[in-house]
């Protein structure tokens, strides 16, 4: 089951998807905010979102699990 890990440390600004959504490769899933810059995080697989591990406003570190795509 592919897991989307956070590529950078920052705060979760917006979550653009919900559990059950179908996503495709390169879809924008989350926007992180790091160093006052919004960084969109893109899906790395096709599939359905089975789990969202974070909520808006959370601080995440590099390598933290963000979303599970089933």
């Amino acid at each position: 089951m592919p897991e989307l890990l956070s590529p950078i440390a920052g705060n979760v600004w917006k979550i653009l998807v919900a559990v059950g959504d179908k996503v495709e490769m390169d879809d924008e899933l989350i926007i992180l905010e790091a160093l006052k810059m919004e960084t969109p995080i893109f899906s790395e697989d096709n599939g359905t979102i089975t789990e969202i591990k974070i909520k808006e406003g959370d601080a995440v570190n590099e390598g933290d699990l963000l979303i599970v795509v089933g």
């Binding site: 590529p7 950078i8 160093l35 960084t39 969109p40 893109f42 590099e62």
Partner: peptide, 10 residues
Amino acid sequence: RRNYLLMYAM
């Protein structure tokens, strides 16, 4: 688009 250079550039 999946290249996150921010921390490397810091």
